[in-house]
Design a protein around this nucleic acid. Structure first.
Lengths: 228, 228, 228, 228
DNA sequence: GATGAATGAGATTTCATTCAT
DNA sequence: TATGAATGAAATCTCATTCAT
């Protein structure tokens, strides 16, 4: 959140002088976003931050730790926000909207940061995400909780399990962000707001025009599968 | 598809002896799935294939080309299948089901292959995916086409654009596969079939219990966003 | 031993072409002797061997392994020789002489190699020697065995334990080699042969002129000790 | 020596407050003994001394200088002690005993300090010892002087040169200390005292049981040498 | 004196790729 | 086609030393 830093500084009673650690972290966002975590050398971070090479290692044990720090710092904010949203008395749909809105606005506010989080951690479960699978799962669980309660109070159908609903919801958001990140989708204030609405509309409203939700049809097996 | 290989061989009029190129490709799937593309050395592929180090470079220009080949080979099958499905006369919902089914079954049939395609290419848009963005986009476009026609004939509501619908649909599938790949979701024949149904149900049926689809509510802005 | 390599090659039935592994090993001796193990970069070895940087790592897992290999290769020869000597029917004194002679001649034959073994391993028990303490101890044990048998048959006095005798004997040899290595002692064929004799004479004959070995006198405690 | 410090302080007319320089020096002994000079970072010294990082550089020009200071401080004590011992009217054998005793007791009193001196300087002639070769040689020379005079007055045989005798004597001591330092020899008051006696007994008494010291026999050349 | 953040040169190691056979 | 030795560029991380306060 925007005030996290001020709080830290107030607590430490430090003057608002240049916080090199912060500078490195911020520079890392830019550097990682520009070249990708793997292709980004530690010297790129240092250059971007205008500090000496070694200072990165003064504050962080490794290049990995920089990304770890970056990710956790922000992901925890997300978890807190989702929790907060969940605690409000709102229709489940509005809660989901609020979450989508928060994430989309986060991207609008700092695309580089979100790019790094999504591309280098969340979607890179094989390398980095693995370390943070627990943290990522927590987000799913919180969303699933919202769905579950909505199903319990009857405002959501229980055609799918809460876990699946959460997966689908988060998957849609991530896909949309990915679309922006890689220039597959047009960006802009209008697009951002529309996206929030569309995501929720798709997941909650469904695509079907039929007002009455029928049972799940099972069409004939299609031709084979991808594997050899 | 299962017959792809036979076709190839017939075309080349080769005896069914050990096709080293094929062995390398298959070994690469295993090796990439096991260690991830980056951590996987060319020697790992050669070892897994039981061929000499240098032979990999006889058949492929680079390590990248191995993955490229692997991906395109299979992704094209997907594109063909989606096209085929689209050409059938089926309700849009059934078409989506068929697509989800095909992808899920592909995972069931060869989890390593799908892991590599999803984790190392599709979700790694920053490194590898970039090269294949066009191919990936094609799949979206095909799905969007299905939605578009359904909206035109009135079977799908037009609350969201076809592009968004496609993104959400594919995002849900990918997220579910990711769940299996990283042991966040239980696997099994039952789970696979349930997943197909749930994905379609979520995207088409929507979560809302309300039969009449209302307008999109816009809840009060939530607290800030993730960025600093 | 001189014929070790020929044997290897004969066994492998290889032509006497340039054995790069061997070249690296030999170059390492020169490089380590010149700059010391720590100050010597892997590139120094490669340069000295006239091979590419990476080839060192093709044959050895690490710079350490190069020294390990070097040391063990030769130390095992020493152990074998001591064993052989011990098996001969010779007076103990002659056995010790043979050992001293072997070591001194080894230095005469390849001063660089012995410098590396002594300076970088044997006398560097804190870093490298630690790994090879067992091997080093084996040499002590063999020497102690010679002394022990001599004490048993009455040819050696048992004023000191065999272990101590071995330590003193080996310590004297090492010190002499160190003297040559660091230019504290004149080198030359005469000096080498004299050294062999002196070492044995000192350890076996003792410095005392008194023919009758008395008991150990205990003089008054001297002033304190070095520590603070 | 124990009184060295008091003398220093008296000279500087300082209060007995915590002498940071001294603390650093003492901490360095512990740190060097624990990790070895090379592996020991300057920060390890500072941590051990509970002083700030930079203070080490306030008192010493470099990490090397810390070890230099440490070594010279103590080695000079040794040289003085040997000189003192030499000036006493004692049989040469007793003088050697006194020297061995002093060194062994120094180890008993402060094993860490002696470990550093022996392992990091005296036995590390390639790196550190080189700087202190002169100082080390001085000790040899003093011992050699004792032997020489003993040979002149007839109490020592002149079968070996005084230089050699000194080398053998010091080599034996160093080897024994090394044995203790690396747990190859049992430690304990009894062992320490026995060691003193044994060292002198070996070097002065010799191992041979034969009372009459014969000429140096020259056994047949043993098999080759270690080098390739 | 005292502090510890800041600097940056340097070394090991990895591994994709090439090439001679 | 097949082999695997040979090449060398690159990147991380360490840590002695400096310096501003």
């Amino acid at each position: 959140m925007a005030s996290a830093r001020d709080a830290e500084e107030a607590a430490a009673d430090k003057p608002a002088g240049p916080d090199k650690r912060r500078m490195i972290l911020d520079a890392a966002v830019v550097a990682f976003a520009k070249r990708g975590f793997h292709a980004c050398r530690v010297s790129d971070i240092a250059d971007e931050a205008n500090v000496a090479y070694g200072l990165v290692y003064h504050y962080f044990r490794s290049k990995d730790e920089v990304l770890d720090t970056l990710f956790l710092e922000r992901w925890n904010v997300l978890l807190e926000v989702i929790t907060e949203i969940d605690h409000q008395t709102l229709p489940a749909r509005d809660k989901l909207y609020a979450i989508a809105s928060f994430i989309v606005d986060s991207y609008r506010h700092d695309p580089d940061l979100m790019k790094v989080i999504i591309v280098e951690v969340t979607r890179a479960a094989n390398s980095f995400g693995r370390t943070h699978l627990t943290a990522i799962r927590e987000a799913y669980a919180l969303i699933a909780g919202i769905v579950e309660k909505a199903q319990a109070d009857g405002s959501f159908r229980d055609a799918v399990t809460p876990g699946f609903a959460a997966l689908a919801f988060y998957g849609a958001i991530e896909q949309v962000l990915t679309g922006w990140i890689f220039d597959m989708l047009p960006r802009g204030d209008e697009e951002f707001d529309q996206a929030k609405a569309f995501i929720v509309e798709t997941i909650c409203g469904g695509l079907d025009a039929a007002a009455i939700h029928g049972t799940i049809g099972r069409p004939p097996e299609p031709s084979d599968r991808m594997g050899r």
